[in-house]
Design a protein around this nucleic acid. Structure first.
Lengths: 227, 227
DNA sequence: TAGATTGTTAATCGATTAACAATC
DNA sequence: TAGATTGTTAATCGATTAACAATC
């Protein structure tokens, strides 16, 4: 079933494709929503509609996890929800540190959607000494110089970078040195990290630019076409 | 060169692959940074390093735009920057409306990275009457009921949704009815929109969940492996 | 000319999707 | 059993990448 490949570090690699991994949280959310309506069983067609994907893709994705459905019947909503949650690791408790407490960092620290999914924001860090001690929703702001101590103390494995672009690489270096192995980067900067550290990037103005590209083509039909 | 395909609506489709479109803003940012250092010419190898991609991929991506390089020499930084900016449409002025002025909506309305890239936030809208009239950085909050008027008045073609998940589809419907044809959705919800409307989704807790999935596998080597 | 670097080819890889046998 | 729906196959599509001919 699952493929048995091995990384350079010898750790076996789960056989689940990245594209599938990225959709599992979407299915999880859809199942949670369907479960709250009281639905007990769901077909791949229904769940796919709720998740906004093609049902063949959904079934293929789920097949990487195992055989959790019943032919002729569908999937048990609660059972499938549990299996996906377990696969992702949402049942665990993940300690998260946020670095850069500007508008975005504050918004992230207040975001309700994290806690319910196993993510606990345990510390806020900023490079501006004037802001150290400020409290945002129970959490005081620490200085970047104390990053190592803060990460160790709270056993953070996930760091969120919401600093200006030019500070991001330095923060990433410190996070990695302190033991963080997963980074969610909101800063407009390309980060270099050692192998074994995962970085995901969310770039707000890049998203808008992608929309603008398509928008431009809606407005001026044919403009980019060559004969 | 560019392929000539046609959509169902008869509008010709630019031959640039989606994966390439998503990287053009990254190249643009890298070129801007390199230009600020005073660099006049850049090789695909250098630019690729600055953008965090493979140089073969960079050259292939740029080849969709045209032949803007010089063999044996490289690319003129300013010229290439201009060409990419033009291709994306960053040289234009895009009017953006933000709906949902919670923590995230406020953070977005204050985000400096938009204006410099041709995105002008022209209106803030919220569903809470108690907040109508509040001013955030020059802009007053309007009520969702006035969405249509606001969009028309400012000729917004791009809408940002930063509401709770259960309000998102309603807002999307109103935005589309008012004439918005590109939506950036931060709400945890799957949106259904008519053909011709583009939606991009940024989902903060999904990003963390993807990191958690990989993190789990770092912590418990071999846990997901089957014999 | 010799060295450097682009633009393109072609092979490879991974993701998507329709179709359907398996099976409840 | 008949109808429904999964899990899997195989075809297709799109993206990545190494290699190199073209050419400055």
């Amino acid at each position: 079933m699952n493929q048995l490949r091995a990384q350079a570090n010898g750790r076996p690699v789960s056989g689940i494709p990245e594209a599938t991994v990225a959709r599992l949280p979407v299915y999880l959310r859809a199942l949670t929503g369907l479960g709250e309506t009281g639905l007990r069983t769901v077909s791949s067609e229904q769940l796919a509609a709720a998740a906004g994907v093609n049902s063949a893709k959904l079934r293929k994705d789920l097949s990487y996890l195992g055989s959790y459905g019943t032919r002729g019947v569908g999937y048990d909503v609660e059972y499938l929800r549990y299996q996906i949650a377990r696969e992702i690791g949402v049942n665990q408790d993940w300690a998260v540190v946020i670095v850069g407490i500007g508008n975005l960092g504050q918004a992230l620290s207040n975001y309700g959607g994290f806690r319910s999914r196993g993510f606990r924001i345990v510390a806020l860090v900023d490079g501006d000494r004037a802001r150290v001690g400020e409290v945002h929703g129970d959490l005081p702001i620490h200085h970047t110089d104390d990053l190592d101590r803060v990460v160790t103390e709270h056993a953070c494995s996930i760091g969120v970078i919401a600093t200006p672009g030019d500070a991001a690489q330095g923060v990433a270096d410190r996070l990695v040195a302190a033991g963080v192995t997963s980074i969610l980067n909101f800063a407009p900067a390309v980060l270099t990290v050692p192998e074994g550290v995962d970085v995901r990037k969310v770039d707000l103005s890049i998203e808008l630019q992608i929309l603008a590209y398509h928008e431009q083509r809606k407005r001026a039909p044919g403009v980019e076409v060559e004969a």
